[in-house]
């Protein structure tokens, strides 16, 4: 479940990322019944939907809880979980079949919930989700002039610039290695090579710029990811 909203009438409107794609549905009067417990943010639920041709929203008839990740409510994990959910909501469209997107997203939430370094999980999985949706940052050539092997931050588009186009010092080697390879290599490989914490703010800034330019506005990190919050909007 990636979004949940309760209407004043006591209905719960949910957005679910499923192996069959993204689905929006309503649980009528759900806030007063047992559905309220299962239809909780970040819960993994199996739902039975009733869809009439007239109504635009399907109705949740039943929901079975497959898994809850209560640790996502912890302050050091909560914002990252929101970021994953919001990215998934922005990247995948309704009616688009994507078992892979579902698996990747579910894995991202589990990682943010259980791993000792949720920030690193969020960085890696954000790039993987972007890659799956077809948004791959240009790392082989300068985003402005096309020169090969750029190594400097692109403060506007979040990609890479050559030394001539750049106004900022080059990325440290670990960060550069990460940006160049994260989309292609396995999650496990990236997880085993965390970039040192002091280099991450720059990576978050790059990610934020890239998503904002390519995908659109995502609220989560502006609010809670500490490194990004420092960026002037």
């Amino acid at each position: 479940m990636i979004r949940r909203r309760v209407t004043p009438a006591g209905d719960i409107i949910v957005t679910l990322l499923t192996p069959q794609g993204k689905i929006k549905a309503i649980a009528r009067g759900g806030v007063r019944g047992p559905l309220a417990s299962r239809l909780n943010l970040f819960h993994h639920v199996g739902v039975q939907l009733y869809q009439t041709p007239q109504a635009d929203l399907g109705t949740v008839q039943q929901a079975v809880l497959e898994g809850a990740l209560p640790r996502l409510a912890e302050p050091e994990r909560y914002a990252f979980a929101h970021l994953m959910a919001e990215l998934a909501d922005a990247l995948f469209q309704e009616g688009e079949f994507s078992a892979q997107a579902f698996e990747l997203f579910a894995g991202a939430l589990r990682g943010v919930s259980h791993q000792p370094d949720p920030e690193w999980v969020a960085l890696v999985m954000s790039y993987k989700l972007l890659g799956l949706a077809g948004f791959v940052p240009q790392t082989a050539r300068c985003a402005r002039c096309g020169t090969a092997d750029p190594a400097h931050p692109d403060p506007l588009g979040g990609q890479l610039l050559c030394v001539a186009c750049a106004s900022l010092p080059a990325y440290p080697p670990q960060s550069l290695e990460f940006l160049r390879n994260v989309v292609r290599r396995s999650v496990r490989a990236s997880m085993d090579m965390p970039v040192p914490e002091e280099q991450r703010p720059a990576l978050w800034r790059a990610l934020e710029r890239f998503v904002t330019v390519q995908v659109g506005n995502v609220q989560s990190w502006r609010q809670l990811v500490p490194h990004v919050a420092a960026v002037p909007a």
């Binding site: 309760v6 806030v31 047992p34 309220a36 417990s37 239809l39 909780n40």
Partner: peptide, 9 residues
């Protein structure tokens, strides 16, 4: 309170 509940309800 049941899980997922709001005080109001």
């Amino acid at each position: 309170l049941p899980v997922g509940g709001a005080l109001e309800y």
